[in-house]
Amino acid sequence: MSGCRRSGFRVVCLLFALVLGGCGNGAGPAAPADAPAGAATAEITVFAAASLADAFEQIAQRFEARNTDAQVVLNFAGSQQLAQQIRQGAPADVFASASGKQMAVAVDGGRIERGGAQPFARNRLVVIYPKANPAKLRSLHDLARPGVKLDLAAKEVPAGQYSLDFLAAAAQDPAYGAAYRTAVLRNVVSYEENVRAVVGKVALGEADAGIVYESDVVAEGADMGTLKIPADLNQVATYPIAALNDAKHVGAARGFVAYVLSAEGQAILEQHGFIRVGE
């Protein structure tokens, strides 16, 4: 009898553990910033591309300091994931995307009016490698050397698409050629689902190199080496921002967008490695 009870208890424990944590798949990178609940405050939810994490956290703090009745909740993830969430009706007030393509997805969903988005920042690509430089990279050409472990963002992610565009441009350039692109793509070991994951894997030393945004280098500090991509091959990512039509507090949402576009907001973005948009 006691054996029976013990095995029954074990099965219950098993099921309990299963319910608790075992099947927690699909871990998304979204991490809303903690915001204390306020009764009369306007809470605005900002969906922002992963690469904007550090810059927008600071912008949100400054915005809240200037507008004491507003509270900003941030949700960071790959722009493609955020666009789909918005398409599916997720509650959001502002969308800051890393590419016009993902903004168009949100506009097509009807939650942002056509022409309602405006560019607020630009970003450029850069190659990063771990500080120890295990693959002894000296120039962009070394990326094509067999055996180099390259990590890119998936082509569904804006940063990933820009990386592929860079390689396509390199294929056209006589200094690199089509063979360069083929060799580089053969060196890819993984296509991450957001650009910060690429940064993470390179920082951990798991990958020999990665292609990320210049702003990501500023965020990571001095922990990695960089290889510049020449201006004629580099892709300029234009980041659009828009307030959603069905924002709970439209005024506050528009105010946030205005702040991002203001001189102060642009200065913060520049500090974090972004290129400001011309006034």
């Binding site: 927690g24 798949n25 699909g26 871990a27 890819v188 070991v189 993984s190 296509y191 689902e193």
Partner: peptide
């Protein structure tokens, strides 16, 4: 159904 550990450890290719 495993996802989280796979994408972090094995990557996505």
């Amino acid at each position: 159904g495993e996802f989280g550990a796979t994408i972090v450890f094995a990557g996505n290719f």
